[in-house]
Amino acid sequence: MSAHLATDLPGTATATPAGADGAAVSLSGLAKCYRGPPEVRAVDGVDLVVPPGQLFGLLGPNGAGKSTTVGMCTTRIRPTSGSVRIEGIDAVADPSRVKRRIGVVTQDNTLDRACTLWENLVYHCRYFGWSGRDARARADELLERFHLADRRDAFPMQISGGMAQRLQVARAIAHRPSVLFLDEPTAGLDPQSRIALWELVHELRADGLTVVLTTHHMEEAQTICDRVAIIDHGRVLVDDTPQRLIAAHGTAATIDVRFGQTPDARLLDRLRAIAGVSDVEPRGDAVRLTTDDRTGLLARVVEAAEGVDLADVTRSGANLEAVFIHLTGRDLRE
């Protein structure tokens, strides 16, 4: 591809293009059924619209249908029924045009281990038709922007997980797409790497990029997403801003208690007996209590733990995790 055509691709610093309906991503009646026995409906009639320039989260537990939905959006999985449109282009009828407009980071590390970091970026651009000169310049630019320039000649197996994930994002946007799909992008990353990755994603969004991400980390999504859809059993349960969802459905609060040892059954029973506690979830040497918003609960929790080595107690108000449990009754880590 010539330099002129490369700069004309979607996803430059100008406003993100949209389809005729004004959407960057539009899903209508989207479904995916895997024949059995037993028959599995991984996605069951999803309707979603993602406006241009939005950071949109598709949330839910493992097996909820998030990755399958993204797979259909990115042309990797063919829908059983319904439609996917990326900037108005049908992903089934015209997958080649859609691929030029999207960047994808999957859950797995798909970097070419036989190529250096720099070569991974150069060959990606070349695959999309860029000239050698433009591809090399783009690789240099992205390595600088993603703080990887000093490792340009290293191979993927020689860098940390956080660096590898940053490189995958850099490669996904190397051909200047306008919609970026991130499937569980922070899985397995340490806190510092997660923060660094989200800072880069926010920078890309400021450039006009639309970002669609899947995650089961509700706290993370509550902080970074403009809008979220909670999906379970292949169906969208709710779709709104995190603040509105919490206001409408966030009836519970949580208290996290960490002990010096794994709590025994008697301690768990005492915690369950506290008025206002609706659920007690053991987590190794810690326990998460789902509670209502009544006052005095922290004191009663401390009283119930008398005689036990109590290391830490924290309380959080209603959040997206509480919204999910309220709507489905399922724990997010199932």
Rank of each mutant, 00 (worst) to 15 (best):
H4N: 10
T251G: 15
T262H: 10
R194N: 12
V40D: 02
L245Y: 10
S193T: 11
R272K: 12
A31I: 04
G82K: 08
G162N: 07
A135M: 06
P52S: 14
I159Q: 01
R300E: 15
L142V: 04
A187L: 10
H233A: 13
R97S: 15
A247S: 14
T116W: 00
S316D: 14
G22D: 06
L320C: 04
G250V: 02
V211G: 07
K66M: 11
Q261R: 13
V287S: 00
A273G: 12
R145T: 11
L289Q: 04
D183P: 08
H216P: 09
E303T: 15
G19D: 04
I230N: 06
I325G: 02
L237Q: 12
S131P: 10
M1L: 14
G88Y: 11
R136S: 08
C73W: 02
L267D: 08
R126E: 11
G260D: 09
I89V: 15
I89D: 04
L320S: 01
A18W: 00
V43C: 12
I230K: 06
E199A: 10
I224N: 13
R288F: 05
R76H: 13
L59M: 14
F324K: 04
T314M: 14
V98F: 07
A154C: 12
C115V: 02
A322P: 00
V277N: 10
S2I: 05
S96M: 10
I231F: 05
R76N: 08
Q165I: 00
R288Y: 01
A64Q: 06
G161A: 05
G57L: 01
D285C: 09
T290Y: 09
A305D: 04
G53F: 13
G208C: 09
L197K: 08
